[in-house]
Design a binder for these strands. Sequence first.
DNA 1: CGGACGTTATCACAGCTGTGATAAACAGGT
DNA 2: ACCTGTTTATCACAGCTGTGATAACGTCCG
Lengths: 199, 199
Amino acid sequence: MIDGGGGGDAVRHRVLEAVLRLVERGGVAEASLRRVAEESGVNIGSVRHRFGSHEALLTAAAEEVGARMERRLDAALLDPPGPSDVAGRRALLEHVVAALLPEAPEERAELVALHEFVAAARIHPAFRPLAARMGRDMRALLRRALDLAGVADLDVETERLVALVSGLTFDLVHPHGAGADTPAPHEVLRHHVAALIPG
Amino acid sequence: MIDGGGGGDAVRHRVLEAVLRLVERGGVAEASLRRVAEESGVNIGSVRHRFGSHEALLTAAAEEVGARMERRLDAALLDPPGPSDVAGRRALLEHVVAALLPEAPEERAELVALHEFVAAARIHPAFRPLAARMGRDMRALLRRALDLAGVADLDVETERLVALVSGLTFDLVHPHGAGADTPAPHEVLRHHVAALIPG
DNA sequence: CGGACGTTATCACAGCTGTGATAAACAGGT
DNA sequence: ACCTGTTTATCACAGCTGTGATAACGTCCG
């Protein structure tokens, strides 16, 4: 099998998981062919035979983690209709944004890896299609959530929420300057949602 | 001269400028000793003699661009007392935040380089002190500006503004998913400031 | 059986990296 | 004039990188 992007394959899965672990730990630069081979336990020859080139391997891993995030985002909006009172609309918004800022360790790790790929897109053109798609997905999701929650000024409010979530994500991936007394991300989020949907 | 961190030195300045150009273009990985030597026109032997090691060279460049940003932030708060009516307080906030999101090309380039160093701190411990300091500086500045503008809920509003500015910065450094019709960063900013200081 | 194909296992190659080392040219100050 | 420190100019070394190439082994399917 020469990798058509399919999902039901043990070896492919092991290799991509290894790439994601390495990227989460040390950025895209850490995911060299030899390291991926060692980390996954798959022979370097197999890795190359499957994915063709180093760049193809990394973009496959990036597409994989991007697709997982998209699945999670879709589920977040399909899941909860909810009541349309103030509390229900606030809960809807918080629920959707929570999908973008997961707390579970494995999802958190995937978020870090995805963030690393998106950041690397500035330098490596191979990641740009994915980065652009993820940005559009995020905007579309938040816009629809704001719309469902009955928020006005959709254009600018979408952009504000995108920036807020991006900033929280960045600080989550690159912790710097936040003390023990600074409010947690979800607190900031609740505050923003409450300001958007006044009681 | 073996580099004590002083400023009045032509060779040192040329080398550090070369590092910043390379980092802005291609991330910290692009700023190898040989490339810096070629880009600056200074012999690689001199570069090594001055800075001792590759890591020391990069941290010196990071400290340099960090210090420049800090100078700009200090100036932003010393500069304008301004009237204390609604328009004046909004103008103050926008003025301060504008220092964090410069539009001039050279300052923009420095912002990209600084962002790259802060992001690299996740992986390279040498940049962590700088990253932490920049994060604290940003928080302190925005907190003082919000305080001067008479905004309540200082703790959470500071964190919200920090996240907003971080997100706008990230999207500025790593453009992804923003269409031609999406509101510009300064528009989002004005909207947020107007929401913080109701008329 | 036999061919196709994925997998493991190597070797070699050119290219880049930071670093150690050395030598000569040049500068400025005592 | 002499010494000290900076600059330029090289060479070598080990280590990593992606890639090309080859060969043997295994498995599965026709």
